[in-house]
């Protein structure tokens, strides 16, 4: 069972889309007893099947100087379990990238806790954070961020070799992932010799090579054409199904979001709604569009 609540904005739209079955993630925003109660409910229900990968509690992020503060995130609670595939949607300025940056330890919250691998990452040293990012987290960026100085194979193998994994194992893993993502023939090429889709799949390989606990993707299809985007989403689905990978993807594209198991819609730093896919992807896509429309047309 999973629940989504927003103490400050419990709109009809949000409650009508609440799904009681499906994956085991839970997200709440707001504060007070209600949130705490719901969190504890979730913990009882989820702990039985799947391991918790990431948990955030009462997450707040402020920007700007005193007197001119803008609250980007307004107390968000979220639990991500193993094998989840979550999409976070929202309009520009809704706080989705801020949320992703904090979850992936690139940014620090103003308040609240982010618990990854049993540790609150908001309180650990930068050195430990680096280690955490290297060992537990995989990143996929909108603009691929492959290093143009090296071949695709070297790009993919880099995180492993930097971790001190024997070269033989690095090579084996690179070819394994290259095969899985249809890049075997392109491994010796430089990023500029590859298409956008190939580059992004290469970036996914690089993110997955260390077998991270969770994969964060920031608008991964943003720079791709529809065909390449679809291929990439298929890859995400494949690693989620076959490799039991946990994925958290930020996107503004309803089509991309429809490939996820759960979609959370953010607005003004709070979670407005959560949708769960259940069965057919096309039907799920229609539902996302409907919810977006009912939440305020193009604003969602």
């Amino acid at each position: 069972m999973k629940k989504i609540t927003n103490k400050m904005n419990q709109t009809k739209t949000a409650s009508s889309n609440e799904v009681v079955s499906g994956s085991m993630s839970s997200i709440t925003s707001g504060s007070g007893n209600e949130t705490a109660d719901r969190s504890s409910n979730k913990a009882v229900n989820s702990g039985a099947d799947k391991e918790t990968i990431l948990e955030i509690r009462n997450l707040t992020k402020d920007y700007g100087a005193k007197g001119f503060r803008t609250q980007a995130l307004k107390g968000i609670d979220l639990t991500i379990l193993k094998n989840d595939f979550i999409a976070i949607m929202g309009p520009s300025g809704s706080g989705k990238t801020t949320l992703l940056n904090i979850l992936s330890s690139i940014d620090k919250p103003t308040q609240g806790q982010v618990i990854l691998d049993g540790k609150n990452i908001a309180g650990i040293s930068n050195q430990e954070l680096s280690k955490l990012r290297r060992d537990k987290i995989g990143f996929v960026f909108q603009d691929y961020n492959l290093l143009d100085t090296m071949t695709l194979q070297d790009n993919i193998a880099l995180p492993l070799s930097l971790n001190g994994v024997p070269a033989k194992r690095c090579i084996e893993r690179t070819f394994e992932l290259g095969r899985m993502f249809g890049l075997e023939e392109h491994l010796s090429k430089y990023p500029y010799q590859l298409s956008g889709g190939q580059r992004q799949r290469g970036a996914v390989c690089r993110a997955l090579i260390t077998d991270p606990e969770i994969l964060f993707a920031d608008e991964p299809t943003g720079a791709l054409d529809s065909k390449a985007g679809k291929e990439l989403l298929r890859c995400f689905q494949m690693v989620n199904d076959r490799k039991q990978a946990t994925i958290l993807m930020v996107t503004h594209d309803a089509y991309a979001a429809s490939w996820a198991k759960d979609v959370y819609i953010l607005n003004d730093g709070t979670v407005k709604c959560r949708l769960s896919r259940g069965g057919d992807r096309r039907e799920f896509y229609d539902r996302i569009i409907d919810v977006q429309a009912s939440m305020g047309g193009d604003r969602a």
Binding site: D148, T151, Q153, D154, A157, L158, V165, A167
Partner: peptide
């Protein structure tokens, strides 16, 4: 050196050897 992967994939070699080559 860049082509010899067993040599290249040792710690930060992949980074600096590729940078020099680039």
């Amino acid at each position: 050196l860049a082509d010899c992967k067993p040599f290249l994939y040792r710690k930060e070699r992949a980074l600096w050897i590729n940078n020099v080559t680039f």
